[in-house]
Amino acid sequence: MSRLSRWDVKYSPYLYIAPFFVLFGLVGLFPLLYTAYVSMFDWDLLGGDPVFVGADNYLALFSDNQFWTTLTNTLSIFVLSSGPQIVIAVLLAALLNSRLRAPTAWRVGVLLPYVASLVALGIIFANLFGPNYGLANNLLELVGLDRVDWQADRFASHVAIAVMVNWRWTGYNALIVLAAMQAIPKEIHEAATVDGAGPVRRFVSVTLPLLRPTLVFVVITSTIGGLQIFTEPKLFDAMPGSNNGGSSNQFQTITLYMYQSAFEGGHLGYASAIAWVLFLVVIAIATVNFLITRRLAAGSGVR
């Protein structure tokens, strides 16, 4: 082998993986760490020298009512969206995994919502869940129920936003789960059938435990995405262009509050403190979810 060829074998792999690591360092890791640095300053968007304030931004944050409101909103919307979404996605994947005519057409069909942009979606759902003339309220009235103010009522607004999130992501997650279901060898199911297990029993005791790695992946990614929700609440607001998340911040999320503080208020230091706290919350909840999913999926059958 020539020298050139030996170099090729030795160093090419590093060259091939370099783009990811360089880019992640520059636009992923560095900004995240630098956010912690900015959060210790009084730093104005429009210029002027940043003033070091130590932990003051964090102290202010903990006595800031709006911060606690947005944190509660974020968690509430997250719970309302991620739970039902994953349950429905697994059931939908089970449906798609049964013998179907034109299987690919159905798969493409359930992926359809993924095409919709979040901005378009926010606008469309703000319209469907309009406080006065929305289709949702018209339907409620048609079946004899009271109209709901989807904007002003805090819980109702969370439900409307959660519906939006579920609508867009359920099909996507179902396809990921489906891919994992198809990788389960048929022999395992046949063996369980021979042992006298019915379809429900097979699903609970065979399929679910084998889906564990995939479920962990789906839960973690939807946790990370769900806690950073921004576009849906911003566009859902009946007040055009507003970053308030409703007149009394009833559906403002943390990311929206961070955006408002930084790019409407100009307080980059304070906004960075918000971002850093959210970062810790995301990591904490993702870890807890990881542990729970592992336990649950492991506890329900063959080991």
């Binding site: 792999p13 992640f24 890791l29 900004p31 995240l32 900015v38 990370i224 960075s272």
Partner: peptide
């Protein structure tokens, strides 16, 4: 391909999946 540090480097890639990089928008 075989190269030194392959597995730890790949683990690092997997770990970055859990990093909410969207929160670094200010810097």
């Amino acid at each position: 391909l075989r190269f030194r540090g392959r597995d730890p480097l790949f683990l690092f890639v997997v770990a970055t999946l859990a990093v909410p990089t969207q929160l670094g928008v200010i810097p």
